[in-house]
Structure formats: structure tokens, C-alpha cells
Amino acid sequence: MTLRRRPVRIAAVLVGACLGIAACNRGDGGAPTVALVLKTLNNPFFVEMEQGAREAADSLGIELVVQAPEREIDVEKQMQIVENLLQRRVDALLITPSGSREIVPAVVKANEAAIPVVVVDTRVDAPALEEAGARISSFIGSDNVDGGRMAGRFVAERLGGQGRVAVLEGIPGHETGDSRLTGFREVLAEHPGLEIVSSQTANWERDQAFNVTQNVLQSHPDLDAIFAANDVMALGAVEAVAAAGRTGEIVIVGFDAQDDARIAIREERMDATIAQNPREMGRLAVISADRLLRGETVPAEQPVRIELVTGQQTGAVEAPAREE
């Protein structure tokens, strides 16, 4: 009976959808196409990186394609995106790896297709890269270990070398988070009066950070400071501390200097963050791609400046304070 009409209907819907999407994406001329594959677009850090990259691409006349898996931790999906982009024959690949080792096979595939790879933000595991015989053209990123040290020194100074500290870790096994924690712990180890009473993961997420912090406050009511491996988690901690009515009593330090974190610092709900410069990373990445495509060489390491942001100098924040 009605069954026979079904294929036609589904087909019509799908064709319509695809053509519609295609229509929005037409218009590639002879400009080189550069793909930027991010970890996710649910994190302002990567959104800023994308903006920096777009600005550079526009001024250089490069067509930029930005793609990301829905979830930051989805290494397999990121791999698929890379494969699909290679099918599309992009001219260069800029990537922020979701997994330092897991990305290696994707790099190999790009190498095979003779597409230059620039790695941004998170380092690819060097031994794994070597073992697979893969090459990357450049790494652009900040020194996360150094950033961690910066945060550690700030906490030590604020607590006068004495106190209890909790740490909110990112997803275990991420080079970025691990480096930050390494630097932070390194500094704290130099101060015998500083004790890390808790170090747990909140998987880079705000709501999980809120819960973990609440729990830590239960077990360690005498907590003096919290270090979160990114601002998203730091902001979760800020809320949890506020909910416990202890804003201002506990030093909270994040990482990334997102706008929200800067606002929180200005309002004295948070104490410090480490400014990376994702916009600059994005910009540099596209410029590097441009130079590689012209046959020029780029440095293997391109460090991006890093700085401590505190109440004294929260920098320019466009958005007016509006929370709560």
C-alpha cells in the first residue's frame, strides 16, 4: 500500500537537504584550501583559535575549512574528519590533536597524500611519530609546563608558602593537561608547606568541576587554593566555592584566560589564569601553511607567548560584566 511511496519521500528529503547545504558551501575558486581540525568547537579556546585563523586566511586569500568532532575527546571521530578532508584534497592540514599518540596514523595518511601538517596547541608524541616514520612541518603552541610553573608560583606567593591545595585535572593522558600539572607540581614540591590534598579529574568540564569541587570542600573544608588545568573547570570551581559561601577565601587559578575567566577575576571571584593566545596560534598556523604552500620553510617549533593574568591586569575584556 503506502509503502511504495516511502523511498521517494526519504529520497526527496535527503536530496533537498544535501543540495541546500551544498548551495551554502559553493564558490571555491583557485585559492588554496587549508583545513583546520580542532578538538572541539564547544570550548571558547578553540573558537578563538578559529577566529584568529579566519582573520589570517581572509587577509591571505586562503580558503579555510574548519571542522571538529562533537566531543573534545573523540579521537576516532577526529581521525575520520582528517581522512575525509584528505579525500577532499585540501592543500594543508592544521590540527590540534585530540590524542597525542592517536593522531599519528592520521599524520601518516596526510604524509602519504603529500599534504603538509602543522600541529597546533597539543604536541604529538615524538617517539610515536618517529616510530611511524611520520613527519610534521611545525608545532605551534605555548609552553604548558612553563604555564603550570607560573600558576604554581602564583599560588605559593599568595599563600605565603603555606596551605592546602586541590587540583582539577583534565582528561588523563592529554599532553596539554599533563604538562600544566607537571609544571604546577614541580613548583609546589619546592615549598614543603604546600600540600596537594586532592587531585582529581573533571574531564575539562564545568559541571563536573563544580561537583568535584563541592566534594573536595566537603572532605577538606580547610582548603586554601584550587588549581584547575583549564578555565572551564576553574569556573566550575568558582561556582562551587560561591555556593559554599566561601568566595574570596579560596585562591582559584585557571588556565587559558578565557573571557569569562577574565571577568571572574575582575569581579574577584577568581584569582588568576594563565593567558595563552589561541587567536595568535590560529593566526600563526594559517601563516605557516601559507608559507609552506609557497615552498618556504617554517621553524619546527613556534612558541606562542604565555602570561599570568591577575586582578591587577586583566587585560581588555569586551563583554561587560553581567553574570549573577
Binding site: 568547537l41 575520520q80 574528519i81 575525509n84 577532499r88
Partner: peptide, 10 residues
């Protein structure tokens, strides 16, 4: 795959 190829925003 198609959405990746078309460069559709994630």
C-alpha cells in the same frame, strides 16, 4: 563524510 567534504560547520 559528506558534511566533512562540504566543509559544513560542525
Amino acid at each position: 563524510n559528506g558534511l566533512n567534504l562540504l566543509g559544513v560547520s560542525s
